[in-house]
Amino acid sequence: MTAPAKPEVKVVFQRPESFTDLTTHYCPGCTHGVAHRLIAEVIDEMGLREKTIGVAPVGCSVFAYKYFNMDFVEAPHGRAPAMATGIKRVLPQNTVFTYQGDGDLASIGMAEIMHAAARGENITVIFINNAIYGMTGGQMAPTTLPGMTTTSSPFGRDVELTGFPIRMSEMLATMDGTGYIVRRSLHDVKNIRKAKKALFMAFETQERGLGFSMVELLSSCPTNWKIDPSKSLEFIAERMVPVFPLDDFKVNPELTKKRA
């Protein structure tokens, strides 16, 4: 008997299994949500969910733990890499990742991130750089662009007084303990796809024990930038990318080889 020529329906895209059903608290158009989803997809596709422990930060993503369907802890501001170190060292077989914003990682947690990288901690860091403090209402971040207006740089960031944005990926890539350090952006579909690939590589770095891995993701903050979500994506492409170039800063050559 031949089947009737009825078209088959394929689900091209759906919520990843590693995602809970909760609606995120993020503002409309905030790309934190994209970053979360990519991580969940990568963890699903790599089959890591049941051995992964996430470390949430302080900042807008303080509630990240609610959205991932996996074990999670919540670190003090900036200390996620230290907490992740504590976990990974006693549970080396587990997958441990931190999710941190620019205030958390590049300001108050500068010591913790640098030393976790220097020690070559076999953890994965997802660094969300949106050039502003979102949770506290839009203050200047260590990655705020020169001239950019925030509530604590109301006349625009004056580099004479407040210095310059910090390029974390470039700096961390100088550490011998790192295995994979790249910067990607979430401002369009092409870049989101690249970001996902990078996240895959970062977790692969950890799975292969090749040291510290970090993906820096340029991300939007429509609410505190005070521009609409679509324009915010343009802001990333036009204003942020020139200051924070999208590049591979460290890729352990082992990663390009096939797994034994």
Binding site: A75, A82, G86, R89, A111, E112, H115
Partner: peptide, 10 residues
């Protein structure tokens, strides 16, 4: 600061 947060994680 880092030490105690490692303890916290563990």
């Amino acid at each position: 600061v880092a030490a105690v947060n490692m303890v916290y994680g563990a």
